[in-house]
Computed example of a mutant assay.
Amino acid sequence: MSESHALAPAEQTLAERDTHLSEDAWALILEATPATTRRAYRDDWNRFTRWCATQERTPLPATAETLAQYATSLAMDGKAPATIGRAMAAIAKAHEAAGHPVDRRGAREVLRGYRKRYAKAGGKTKRAPALTLTALRAMVATLDPDTLVGVRDRAVIVLGFAMGARRSELAALDLTDLEPHAEGIQVTVRISKTDKDGAGRIVAVPYGSNLATCPVRAVEQWRTALAHHGRESGPLFLRIDRHGRLGHVATGKGSPDGRITGETVAAIIRRAAVAAGLDAASAFSGHSLRRGFATAAYAAPDADLVRIARHGGWKEGSAALFGYLEEVDRWRKNPAAGIGL
């Protein structure tokens, strides 16, 4: 699946025009899917089309048998069930955009059987470890407050944790999305994975009780550094190259405004975790902030599940959120603990 579509020329017949979309229409369709997901889907689609070429099968429209066979091929290659599921979603998205129906029933059955085999063989779904407050403090302590990188990374980590933010949400923030408040700052999240209509949400971030991990003070320090470098508008979090240059973008790489990416957020967290000597540090990622916030907020005495979900932008009844909270309830509300064993 390509971000650019070779469409028929404008001087087509009226009948032909009824079956084609303009470049503007394709662009809006593509923007309905988050950029990170779009890139992953594009890679999945390209792998599928290459496989179809070697197997002499038609990728678009693909038959149910082709999808089932491709899912089987990925399983035989030892791919994780989640990887296969995403590949099927990418193929379905390509068919939807092109106006073709797609039958994934056979592929779903293949995947269902493979999940059981994968589990029996000891395979586990990879999950980013939840970041605890103790780990957060240890990571922040490794950052040099006298360097641009240290100030930026502290702001990324503690703001991301306080918001329960996705890494893509952090990367997308602009300076104008932050509004001072007597109790802290209000952050407008304009684009979110689960906000399909772009309605946005406002996240209230209060002052912290610990100076080292206070998200409001960390962001204020970073904004002061940005202002010192003449940056008072545009992206909140910018790239910093190995020469210490702020917002510098190598030719042909990265966003031209110098904005960091979601991958940069993950790299910042992983680097700080390694520096702090945390167990399984290399497994930490951008999602560790989100999981860590959910479990820490739910473990608090006055936890409010509805408020936690709204704060972090989880859908009502989110299976992912309930999965995080189960980690807390597994011991706090263990049904075997009070039966007299």
Rank of each mutant, 00 (worst) to 15 (best):
A138G: 04
L14G: 02
F48G: 02
R166I: 08
A294P: 14
S22L: 13
A272M: 13
A276Q: 07
D174F: 05
L28K: 14
L226S: 10
A165L: 06
L21I: 11
G150K: 12
Q55V: 09
R167A: 15
R154W: 13
W222T: 06
D177T: 01
V219R: 13
L131E: 13
A89H: 09
P61H: 10
V274D: 11
Y207M: 09
S22E: 07
A53I: 05
K124W: 00
A128G: 07
R166F: 06
D174H: 14
A62I: 08
L278G: 08
L236A: 06
P301F: 00
T264D: 15
H5C: 10
P180T: 09
M76Y: 12
R307A: 12
L238A: 03
T295P: 07
L289M: 15
A182G: 12
G198F: 02
A320C: 04
V189D: 03
H100W: 12
G208Y: 11
R291W: 03
L325V: 01
A40M: 03
G234Y: 07
R47W: 00
A138F: 01
D304P: 05
G198A: 05
R223S: 06
G160T: 10
A294G: 11
I308T: 05
L67V: 08
A199M: 13
A273H: 08
T83L: 06
G99N: 08
I29C: 01
Q55S: 12
A138H: 05
G338I: 10
L14M: 11
H248M: 04
A275L: 15
A276P: 05
A130Y: 04
T66H: 02
A89D: 14
I260S: 03
A199P: 00
Y324I: 06
R17T: 02
T66M: 03
H248Y: 03
R38H: 08
P101C: 11
P59R: 04
A15W: 05
A303F: 01
H311T: 14
R217Y: 06
Y114G: 04
A212M: 12
A68C: 02
T176P: 01
R259E: 10
A82H: 13
D43I: 00
I84W: 05
K253M: 12
T264W: 11
W45A: 15
R239W: 00
P256D: 10
A71E: 09
S4G: 06
G150P: 10
P34Q: 05
D44Q: 09
M1K: 09
T213G: 04
I157E: 11
E183H: 12
I268N: 02
D153N: 15
A25Q: 15
N46F: 00
G200W: 08
R154Y: 10
R190L: 04
G234T: 08
D44C: 09
A280R: 14
I185G: 00
L211T: 14
K120H: 11
Q221A: 07
Y114S: 03
I91G: 05
V274P: 04
P215T: 07
R239Y: 00
R17H: 13
A121L: 14
T188K: 14
K79C: 14
L148S: 07
T33D: 00
R271Q: 15
T19W: 14
R201D: 02
Y41G: 00
Y41C: 01
